[in-house]
Write a protein that binds this DNA or RNA. Structure first.
Lengths: 330, 330
DNA sequence: CTGAAAGCGCTTACAG
DNA sequence: CTGAAAGCGCTTACAG
C-alpha cells in the first residue's frame, strides 16, 4: 500500500480512503490511486486490515454434513445473501463430528470473523457460549435447542412429520410405520411427534408403529426392511425421517417383491438431491434450505451492523410436502 | 496476550513462545502461562499473528460443486491431511461459476492464506496466474489443463472411459453408446476418447455411437433416453460421463419398459453418493476423491514448507470400476 | 530460558 | 479533500 501511495503521489491514508470510503475522496485522486493499484497488482492484506480495523469482513458458516444436500442448499442461500451484503463467506464441514465442530468454532474465533453461522449437532452447544463470550456474533441454523440468547433459523420439524402422516392417511393408508432414527435426535423426535399428532387427530382406526434405528443411513433402512419382511407384517404406509433411510427401505422391500407404492407407500425427509433421481422418485418433506441460509445470514448481518438495537429472534420456517411416485403411482 | 503475560508474570514474548515454540520454554513457565490463558479464556488473534509472522496457518480449498459428492470426498481428504499437518482448512464453493471461483481466489489471496487448492472450472486458469504472482502457493486438483508451473492432482480420465467401455464389452455388449456431455469439457472428451480406444483395440465389430448433450444433469439423460426411444434404436450398452446423467437415462428407459441391465447395460461416472442408493444400483467409474484431497494438500504443504527445494509435479491417480446392478443383474 | 523492542500493513481520529 | 501519526495484537531476532 506504501508503494501504491508513492506511485500515486498521495499519502498512505488516502489510499486507504480510496479503498474504504471512496465517497470522501475526489474523483481525480481515486483515478490516480486505482491506476497505481492496477499497475502494481496490489492486493490489500486482509490480516492487517482486520487487525487495524478491529473487525473482519468475512463470515464463517459451519455445516453439519456437506454430504447432505440440505446443507449445500443452506450454504448456497447464505452465500447469495453474503455476496449481496458485500461480505465473504467461508465454509467449514464439521462432518457430524463434535470435535470438528468445536475446532472450527475456534478457528473462526481466532480469525476474528465478523460472525458465525452454525448448523450445530445435537451433541451440545457449549462452543456457542465460549465463542460468544469472546464477543463473536453467532446465529444457529437448522437446530437451536431451546436457546433464546442468540438468533436462530429453524424449521418446524413437528409440522413436517404431521404433513407426511396426513399425506399417507389422505391416500387411505391405515397401518403406518414411523421407521428409523435415533430417539435422541431432536429432529427425529419432533417429526415422530408430528406424525403421532396427525394420527391422533384423524383417529379413524389408523395405527402408527415406531421402529427406531441407530442412525439415518441407508443401511438402517435396509435392516428395518429386513425386519419387516421377517415378521411378515408389512405396513401400508411408511414415514422415514431421512431420504437415505427411506431409500434403503424401499430398496430392501422392492427386492423382496413388495411393490411401492401400491403395497406400501413410502415418504422420506429432506428432499435430498437423489430423492428425485431414484428409479422410484421419492415423496419427501422438503426443508427450505436456501431460505434458511439467507435468513440466517440476514440475522447475522443485522447483529453485526446494529449491535445496540439488535434483538435476538428465532425464525421458524415451514417445511413442505413433495409428492412423487413412492406414494402416488402415476 | 498482554493480560496473559501480566497475570502469568512473564513478558509478552514468552507467552508467544509458549504458544509457538513450547520446546524452548521451561515446563514451569509453560504451566503458569497456560493457566493464565485458561483463566482469561484467551484466544490468539490470528490476524495479528499472520501479520506479524508474515504467513498464515490456514489453507483454502475452492470446490467446483459441493452438490457433487466427488468434491465432498476431496474436501474430506484434504481436511484429514490438513489436520494431521496442523493446518486449518477453509472451504469455498464456486458452484460451477467462473466469477465465484475468481472471487474466492481473491478472498483467499487477501486473507494471505498459506496456500490454495483449487478445483478449477475448464473456463480458464487466469486467476491462478494472478494469485501466483502475489506469491500465493496453489495446487490444482481434478483438472489442470496443461499447466506444469504448479502442482496438480488429476485422475486419468481417459483410462476411466477405457475401463467403462471394456467392462461393457466384457459383458458381450456390441452396440455401445457414449451418451451425453458437452464436447467442450475436457473430462468428457478424455472419457470418450478412452472409450473409443477400447473399442478400437478390441475391434470385433463393436460399434460406439456418440450423442452429446448440453450438460451433465439428469434432464439431459432423460432427453437422450427419449431420443433413443423415438428412433427405436436402443443400444445394448451405454456409457454416461456422469452418474446424474446416467440416472436420468435409466429412468426414461425403464419407464418405457426397457429393462436394465438385460436390454441395455448402463454405466455412469463419479460414483456419486446416490449411485449406490438408486433402485437399480448403478455401475460407475469411481474417482479416488479422498486420495485426491490428501495428495493435493500434501503437495501444497511441501511447497509451503520447502519453498527452495520444492519441485512442481503432477500426480495422476487411477480411477476404478465399480460394478453394480445397472450392468450386471444378480 | 527470558525480556525489551522493532516491525508486520493496514485504519482512523485528528489537524489542516 | 489530504496528510502525519498512533495503534491494532502479535512474532522474532537480539541481547542477556
Amino acid at each position: 500500500m506504501n508503494d501504491v501511495a508513492r506511485l500515486a503521489g498521495v499519502s498512505l491514508g488516502t489510499v486507504s480512503h480510496v479503498l474504504n470510503k471512496p465517497e470522501i475522496v475526489s474523483a481525480k485522486t481515486i483515478a490516480r490511486v486505482t491506476a497505481a493499484i492496477d499497475e502494481l497488482g496490489f492486493v490489500r492484506n486482509d490480516a492487517a486490515r482486520s487487525l487495524a480495523a478491529g473487525r473482519s469482513n468475512t463470515v464463517g458458516l459451519i455445516l453439519t454434513d456437506v454430504g447432505n444436500s440440505l446443507f449445500v442448499d443452506i450454504a448456497r442461500g447464505a452465500e447469495r445473501a453474503a455476496s449481496s451484503a458485500g461480505r465473504s463467506l467461508l465454509l467449514a464441514n464439521s462432518d457430524v463430528t463434535f470435535e470438528k465442530q468445536e475446532s472450527y468454532l475456534d478457528i473462526f474465533d481466532e480469525a476474528r470473523v465478523a460472525g458465525i453461522i452454525l448448523a450445530p449437532l445435537d451433541a451440545g452447544l457449549d462452543g456457542v457460549d465460549r465463542v460468544r463470550r469472546h464477543g463473536r456474533n453467532i446465529v444457529l441454523v437448522n437446530y437451536a435447542g431451546d436457546r433464546t440468547d442468540c438468533c436462530s433459523v429453524v424449521v418446524d420439524e413437528e409440522h413436517g412429520g404431521y404433513l407426511a402422516a396426513t399425506h399417507l392417511m389422505d391416500l387411505g393408508r391405515t397401518r403406518l410405520l414411523f421407521a428409523g432414527g435415533p430417539s435422541d435426535l431432536h429432529a427425529v423426535n419432533a417429526r415422530r411427534e408430528g406424525a403421532q399428532r396427525a394420527v391422533r387427530e384423524r383417529g379413524n382406526g389408523v395405527t402408527l408403529q415406531v421402529i427406531p434405528s441407530r442412525n439415518l443411513k441407508s443401511a438402517s433402512g435396509r435392516s428395518i426392511g429386513r425386519q419387516l419382511l421377517e415378521d411378515g407384517a408389512i405396513p401400508d404406509g411408511i414415514l422415514a425421517p431421512a431420504d437415505q433411510l427411506a431409500a434403503g427401505l424401499i430398496h430392501e422391500l422392492t427386492d423382496a417383491g413388495v411393490t411401492v407404492p401400491s403395497d406400501v407407500a413410502v415418504i422420506g425427509y429432506d428432499n435430498n438431491q437423489f430423492a428425485s433421481e431414484a428409479a422410484i422418485p421419492m415423496s419427501t418433506v422438503s426443508q427450505p434450505g436456501h431460505e434458511m441460509g439467507e435468513e440466517a445470514l440476514r440475522l447475522l448481518i443485522d447483529e453485526i451492523d446494529n449491535p445496540r438495537t439488535h434483538e435476538h429472534r428465532r425464525i421458524t420456517l415451514e417445511p413442505s410436502l413433495i409428492v412423487r411416485r413412492s406414494t402416488v403411482a402415476h
